[in-house]
């Protein structure tokens, strides 16, 4: 137990140092997630003139929450893993007495810590510019949000890491991720809260993993009504499915792996 703790600390510490090294890059990544903030403008304007069931200020809060959620659940493991497999750099990692995935987990988690100050700064700036939208979630909401955001990150990571496994068979596993991103973009609630979707599309979407990655956590943070039980069940279900698939592909893939270039 003690040893696991020490390993975890070392891993996180090393990767944190890595991340802070490239601060400029990090700020740019934070800024490149500006899509929810752009759409916020369109929806605020639309809510002022049309019938969408939400007030302009709700849209402002929703998209800010979506921005925060996106910042906290960014995942890029498929690109790293693909490179490792193609260049054969996975081989030395396989010799270490620890599953290589923990390297990626550590780098993602510590990047969150390095990114957080910039993201919070932006959120502060936003409230300065638009003070009407300011709100403080209750403690219960906040704790629930923390739990859900961790689950959302886990789900997002599991899905992408499963796509990464395809790198054992083809050189372009990231193409799969890019294709998947399209659905993510339009169905996760990043471009609009599910409240404004047509009812049928909404029903279907709720069966997919997408809304639980953005819409669900964002709604909890700003206090929009959501079906908690269904949400948690869906997240756990999809996570379990992808975890199983991932481990299966990992075992098959290792047999396939030839350690090219190493």
């Amino acid at each position: 137990m003690n040893q696991t703790l020490r390993k975890t600390r070392t891993f996180l510490w090393v990767y944190y140092a890595y991340m802070v090294e490239y601060r400029a890059e990090l700020i740019l990544w934070v800024l490149s997630g500006s899509l929810p903030l752009i759409l916020m403008g369109v929806w605020i304007e639309a809510a002022a003139g049309g019938q969408f069931g939400l007030r302009p200020v709700d849209f402002a809060r929703y998209f800010l929450a979506a921005f925060i959620v996106r910042q906290l659940t960014v995942v890029w493991v498929v690109w790293e893993f693909e490179r490792e497999v193609v260049e054969g750099r996975l081989s030395p990692r396989l010799l270490q007495p620890i599953d290589p995935v923990w390297h990626h987990v550590a780098s993602h988690v510590s990047e969150r810590l390095a990114r957080l100050p910039f993201a919070l700064l932006l959120v502060g700036l936003f409230f300065l510019l638009y003070p009407q939208a300011f709100w403080v979630p209750s403690l219960g909401q906040f704790l629930l949000f923390l739990l859900v955001i961790v689950l959302a990150f886990v789900l997002r990571f599991l899905i992408q890491y499963t796509f990464a496994m395809i790198a054992f068979w083809t050189e372009r596993a990231s193409a799969l991720e890019q294709f998947w991103m399209l659905f993510f973009l339009f169905l996760s609630g990043l471009i609009a809260p599910l409240e404004v979707f047509p009812p049928l599309v909404r029903q279907v979407t709720l069966w997919t993993p997408f809304p639980y990655l953005v819409y669900f956590p964002a709604s909890i943070l700003i206090g929009l009504p959501v079906n908690l039980g269904q949400g948690f069940l869906a997240m756990l279900g999809w996570s379990g499915l992808f975890f199983g698939l991932n481990r299966w592909l990992w075992r098959r893939g290792l047999k396939q792996y030839s350690g090219m270039g190493a």
Partner: peptide, 29 residues
């Protein structure tokens, strides 16, 4: 700044605003 390969991603993100005609945005935008 040597290591800023993602600076164009910021530009690309902002260009998404071009999906809608400008009147769709509030005055500040």
């Amino acid at each position: 700044f040597v290591k800023i390969y993602n600076v164009t991603e910021v530009l690309r993100g902002l260009l998404e605003a071009g999906r809608y005609p400008m009147v769709a945005y509030p005055a500040a935008y």
